[in-house]
């Protein structure tokens, strides 16, 4: 700690200046955030205690028609008392966690395996594949969702056409019209008892798989390249097989990179607004709704601003819990000296 020794030797004025320095560097960020984050946040908390409606939008909290209704919005959300069909808070919450978790559980192993495949020494066309594999990351989610919604369309969709072609090959003459995104009956009823998963969930998992693994491959590739080659050489001299090398060298050394990436992937999937909204809009019957899409629906279509504000406060606390837990894993907020 040479820095602090120097500071200790300096005068009291310099000491003070040094003590406030970190705060000075934070001023720009917090000045901006006070106006565009903290003020709206406080405002939103106040709105959550009112019956804020469209007519109050012009005057905001100064509107004379505004009534303070205490915790009514919060109670309504928890007891499904909102004038909204098929809404149950804990079902959406469970589904949201399940959705994010299952996505990450599929994306990370796939991403790592593909990165390992791309890292094989002497593989031809490596750079071409690396460039191609990155494409899903850069296509706007809106476009991705629109394309996949088309693929799953019951009449025009590529998937049903493909299945029909296969069925015809086996002698069937029926045209297959599976309602991938709108069928309500769950294919596996016992999975996730709090609210069975509709066919749309599996369709979205498939589409989001396309979207999700390339990012994990990017991160895993970066980490793979930093593993010293000597380790593998030493292991193979000692007679370790490729599989043993994978489990005993590659996997442990990838972990430091893949854990933060998994956390990032979890948060991204947890709040995957544009994709979910454009794939199913939360349907059928709100069974694929996640928290953010429901919050959007409350504001944009149902115009229940008070309830939306209360709902946002719930989301805030859910996300804060997730953030604090994942922060323990990734140490994102630790300073350099604590590491």
């Amino acid at each position: 700690m040479a820095m602090s020794e120097i500071a200790g030797a300096a005068t009291r004025g310099a000491k003070f200046r040094r003590a406030i320095l970190p705060y000075l560097y934070l001023i720009p960020a917090f000045a901006v955030m006070t106006i565009i984050t903290f003020y709206p946040l406080v405002y939103q908390v106040i709105v959550s205690f009112t019956d804020f409606q469209t007519k109050d939008l012009r005057l905001g909290l100064a509107s004379p028609a505004l009534n303070f209704i205490g915790l009514q919005n919060y109670v309504d959300i928890l007891t499904a008392g909102l004038p909204v069909q098929n809404f149950e808070f804990f079902r959406i919450l469970t589904y949201n966690f399940w959705w994010a978790l299952t996505n990450v559980m599929v994306h990370v192993p796939a991403g790592v395996l593909i990165a390992v495949l791309l890292n094989v020494q002497g593989l031809w066309l490596k750079r071409v594949y690396r460039a191609v594999y990155i494409l899903p990351v850069v296509v706007p989610p809106l476009v991705v969702a629109t394309v996949w919604r088309n693929i799953f369309d019951e009449q025009y969709g590529a998937l049903n056409q493909f299945l029909t072609a296969i069925a015809m090959w086996f002698g069937s003459t029926d045209i297959i019209q599976i309602r991938w995104l709108t069928e309500y009956a769950p294919p596996i009823p016992w999975l996730l008892p709090n609210g069975p998963l509709p066919l749309a969930y599996y369709a979205m998992m498939l589409a989001n798989f396309w979207l999700g693994w390339p990012f994990m491959t990017v991160v895993a590739t970066g980490a793979l390249q930093s593993i010293p080659k000597d380790l593998y050489e030493a292991a193979s001299i000692d007679g370790a097989s490729d599989t043993q090398q994978f489990w005993n060298i590659t996997v442990p050394l990838l972990r430091p990179a893949m854990i933060p990436a998994s956390v990032y992937g979890f948060t991204t999937s947890f709040n995957l607004f544009a994709f979910v909204y454009f794939m199913t809009g939360g349907g059928p019957a709100r069974s694929t709704e996640i928290l953010v899409t429901f919050a959007y629906d409350l504001v944009r279509n149902l115009r229940l601003f008070g309830a939306a504000a209360a709902f946002s406060v719930f989301i805030f606390f859910v996300s804060l819990t997730v953030f604090l837990i994942t922060n323990r894993i990734t140490h994102a907020t630790q300073s350099y000296t604590e590491a």
Partner: peptide, 22 residues
């Protein structure tokens, strides 16, 4: 530092109404 991450915790749509009014 956790405060800096608040916009990640609050969905954009949650902050958009007050920002709109502001």
């Amino acid at each position: 530092m956790v405060m800096i991450f608040i916009p990640l915790l609050m969905p954009a749509v949650g902050l958009s109404t007050p920002l709109y009014l502001l």
